[in-house]
Design a protein around this nucleic acid. Structure first.
Length: 299
DNA sequence: TGTATTTGACCGAG
DNA sequence: CTCGGTCAAATACA
């Protein structure tokens, strides 16, 4: 496949895919809002989401690059192979990524989810390597979300990020409640770590470093969205601890481009706790993020 | 010492 | 046969 390069592609079909992706994201949010009100509506939304997903898959197979969403047979359990170095290994993976769920060109790899890098590969006809990430909760919650990140060919300061699968991971049950108000035009998108669980004490402080609102919203906002993302990361990561790969980048010759996580490993801005048991992330139902948006952490 | 990242090998699809 | 996605040992780091 002629990999990557969504930025260089602007065929109508590609735009249709983007529209569909946006439509699906909106539907997903809507579903979340409706969930508490009516199971019937939720089912309806599920149906819509399925349709959108299949439409995306169909379109994607034919027109978007690097996003093969063919749901080919997977789960091929292989016996073991022995390498020349004497290593033995088991094979159990699907050859093709399935569940294409979006593609973005972003300034940052921080997207509110916690990813673990599991591979990097030089790609044919591409100057930059592609990095492979899976959700950090794959092991403990079986979350199958994945993403591929690659430095954009046309804009080396940006990344082509392709998402596969849906996050099925959930925040831990003892996480504090996050309140996202998206209705008012003033102080909209206010996120508050309410003192719902005073007993959490220190945990709350720690969690505040690991929570992030959906950067989907940030990405889709109109003006200079990435500054917002950085600011968000700065606030959210203020109590940063061990890092995960949230901000890791396709490493090409150690140029450090995009090393916005505050220096690879080692926490700081954009860093999140790595222990699956110690954190969760919450995708807030934020609307567009405006200049006066802010996040209030209420201990 | 535990966890995340790196990196070369493996292997299936095309 | 080539390409690209994944595995898993080795390595780095806090």
């Amino acid at each position: 496949m002629a990999s990557s390069g969504s930025a260089g592609r602007d065929v109508p079909a590609a735009r249709a895919v983007n529209d569909l992706i946006e439509a699906r994201e909106g539907a997903t949010r809507l579903k979340g809002m409706l969930q508490e009100q009516s199971s019937e509506l939720t089912e309806l939304m599920d149906g819509m989401l399925n349709k959108l997903s299949s439409a995306l898959s169909a379109l994607d197979t034919g027109c978007t690059a690097g996003a093969s969403a063919s749901g080919s047979a997977d789960g091929v359990i292989r016996a073991r192979a022995e390498s020349s170095t004497g290593r033995t290994r088991k094979r159990s993976f699907s050859r093709r990524l399935e569940g294409f769920s979006g593609k973005r060109v972003t300034d940052t790899l921080v997207d509110g989810h916690i990813w673990r890098k599991y591979g990097q590969k030089e790609i044919q006809n591409s100057t930059h390597p592609r990095s492979y990430y899976r959700c950090t909760h794959k092991s403990d919650q079986g979350c199958n979300a994945k993403r591929q990140a690659q430095i954009c060919e046309t804009h080396p300061i940006k990344y082509d990020v392709t998402y596969y699968g849906e996050h099925t991971c959930k925040p831990p049950s003892n996480t504090p409640m996050i309140i996202a108000a998206a209705s008012d035009d003033r102080a909209e998108n206010l996120v508050s770590f309410a003192p719902t669980f005073p007993q959490l004490g220190q945990a709350t402080t720690q969690l505040s470093s690991s929570w992030c609102t959906s950067v989907d919203d940030v990405f889709s906002s109109s003006s200079d969205p990435f500054v917002q993302a950085h600011e968000l990361a700065a606030v959210v990561g203020s109590a940063g601890r061990t890092s995960s790969t949230v901000g890791s980048v396709p490493d090409h010759s150690g140029s450090g481009i995009g090393d916005m996580a505050g220096g690879g490993q080692g926490g700081g801005t954009g860093s999140f706790p790595s222990s699956p048991s110690s954190l969760g992330f919450v995708v807030g139902s934020l609307g567009s993020i405006g200049n006066d948006d802010f996040f209030l952490f209420d201990p």
